[in-house]
Design a protein around this nucleic acid. Structure first.
Lengths: 118, 118
DNA sequence: CTCATTACTTACATTTATGTTAGTACTATA
DNA sequence: TATAGTACTAACATAAATGTAAGTAATGAG
C-alpha cells in the first residue's frame, strides 16, 4: 500500500498532473505491464490461466497486482463468467487500444537501439 | 546499489533482453527522467544549475543519480569545462535525439487521455 | 468422499527507488 | 581573511515495488 502522504507521492502526483509523458509512463511502467499489454494486443482476449502460462516468471500475486492496476487505470477490462471452475477473460479497453501506436513505437525503438549482445 | 543476483534483477534483465518495449521504458522510466529529457529537448544544452533550478522539487542527490543513469545509458552527454567555479553542460546525444518522436508521442497521449481534473 | 480445476487471496520477506541533510573542493573577488 | 559561486558527494532514512509460499471457494467427475 502507499502512504497517504510523502514527498515521494507528492512528487509523483505533481509530475503526472503536469507532464503527459510522465503520466503515460506511469500507466504502462510496471515490471510486467508491457508483457501483459503485448499479449492482449496479440490475442485480443485471454483467460487468466492462459495469460499466466505465457509468462512463466511472474508470481501469481504480482501478476494479479499488475492486472488490477491496469484495470483501475482503465486500460484493460475483466469479464467474469459465472461458471465453475471460474472463467475470467481479460482484454484491452477502448482506451487500451488507443495505446497501440505508443506501444509499437516503444517496442520498435527498443529493438532498434538496444546494444548488441545486450 | 543493486544486488548482484536476485529474482527481481533476473526478471528485469530477461524482460529487457526479450522485449523492446520494456527496454525502452527502463531507459526513460525514472521519476525525473521525463522532465530532464524534456528540458534538454527544449533547451538543447543546459548547465547543471540551470537544469536544477528548473526542477525545484528534486533533491540534488536524486537529480545527479538520474543524470548519471541517463548518461550511462548513452542518452545524454556531460561536458566539463575546466573553469572555476566549475561548469558542466548536459545535452542529448545522438541516441537521445532518436528518442524525440517516442517522447512526443508519450507526451501527446498523456495530455490527450489523462482524466479531466486529474 | 476425494480429487482436479480455476482464479484468485493472505501473510510475510526482500530488493529497489527515492528523499534529507550536511558537507566538500576550487578559486576569484571584496 | 571571509564570502560567493558551482557541481557535486557521503551518510543516513524512508517509501514503494517486487517476490515467496501457502491457502481458499466452488463444483463436477470418478
Amino acid at each position: 500500500m502507499r502512504k497517504e502522504s510523502s514527498t515521494n507521492l507528492e512528487n509523483e502526483v505533481q509530475i503526472n498532473a503536469s507532464c503527459g509523458m510522465a503520466y503515460t509512463l506511469d500507466l504502462i511502467g510496471g515490471r510486467w505491464k508491457p508483457t501483459i499489454l503485448w499479449r492482449l494486443l496479440d490475442y485480443g482476449s485471454l483467460r487468466y490461466n492462459k495469460l499466466r502460462k505465457s509468462m512463466p516468471n511472474v508470481s501469481e500475486r504480482i501478476l494479479i497486482l499488475q492486472l488490477r492496476e491496469l484495470e483501475n487505470d482503465g486500460l484493460i477490462s475483466r469479464k467474469i463468467y459465472p461458471e465453475v471452475p471460474p472463467r475470467v477473460e481479460y482484454k484491452l479497453t477502448e482506451l487500451g487500444w488507443k495505446l497501440e501506436p505508443v506501444l509499437r513505437l516503444l517496442s520498435d525503438w527498443g529493438d532498434a537501439n538496444r546494444p548488441i549482445g545486450y
